[in-house]
Write a protein that binds this DNA or RNA. Structure first.
Lengths: 157, 157
DNA sequence: CGTCGATAGTTGTCCGAACAGGTATCGAGG
DNA sequence: CCTCGATACCTGTTCGGACAACTATCGACG
């Protein structure tokens, strides 16, 4: 490519990386718009889905399941609690651990979140056929596998 | 699939969406680790690369180029200025606009950022061959095209 | 029983991202 | 010239996300 050599390095670098950035931002933006109607913020719905699916759980399990951060989870749970989506209690067998559970009130939005999440999936996939759809997921999984070992894991994450 | 029907809806929903979330987070995390050595935070490097490649620019052009937010850009630029990577001056022909330019000092890290960015790209692509690489980018571009019209654009964005 | 390392959570801080609201400036039309 | 809408930018606030530092508790080991 003769043209590329005359261009500054930054311009043509990272076609894959920048595609990931753009898609991720749009995806999150759309999630945010859909979640807004339910009163949740992007990220919170993942916690709720975990709790709805698997029942009451230790906070640390949520952290591991969502590959999140202990500090982030603390505050996310605090906000969900303030909003009435979640209840917390200290474990009786181990007073270090906090058990988190979805409130009965939260069950009212469960269906909406499921619907919303599948809308998100549909819009994202859009005109992609069955094969392309499976192909992206497959390739993204490989990319995930490439990135995972390269990312330094931090304590309590 | 008989098994899927007995599972709660949330569990198997959004294979594509969750793949995007996971990849995006790992990608950003790795970018953050690499950028740390240079003293930049994820997102800031994009601004710097724009400035390095295209020279001094109006703040609003940076916003459009990076598909960002005016408010976010304001503060990102403020931080880059405090860190000495960037200089700002008011346009003489239009006193509403701020011209942003990379400082000479910032040129010292340009090569590092370019290197770092291509490392990021390499790790992300990992073992993917030429074809797979092109295929992901192609598919991600289509996903971007699917998402873009669905996202409500906000004023000054 | 007492020490000590590991574990679970919390808080402080800083960052990008987004929304709401506000100010200064510009420019076109009356 | 003056008004008025558009434009460019800033500030306040709230999120998720990440790192650092801290507390409380547990449990194994001497």
């Amino acid at each position: 490519m003769a043209a590329a050599e005359s261009m500054p390095p930054s311009v043509h670098a990272g076609a894959l990386s920048s595609a990931i950035l753009r898609v991720a931002r749009l995806h999150r933006a759309l999630a945010g718009q859909l979640l807004r109607e339910v009163g949740l913020h992007p990220g919170q719905e993942l916690v709720m889905m975990q709790l709805w699916d698997r029942g009451p759980q230790r906070q640390v399990d949520l952290v591991r399941m969502l590959a999140s951060d202990a500090a982030t989870m603390t505050r996310t749970i605090q906000r969900l609690e303030r909003a009435g989506f979640v209840r917390r209690r200290v474990s009786e067998t181990d007073r270090r651990v906090t058990i988190v559970e979805a409130t009965p009130a939260s069950m009212g939005v469960r269906r909406q979140v499921d619907t919303l999440w599948s809308q998100l999936e549909d819009v994202t996939a859009g005109d992609l056929g069955e094969q392309d759809r499976a192909e992206v997921v497959r390739l993204l999984d490989r990319i995930e596998a490439n990135l995972a070992p390269a990312v330094e894991l931090h304590p309590a994450r």
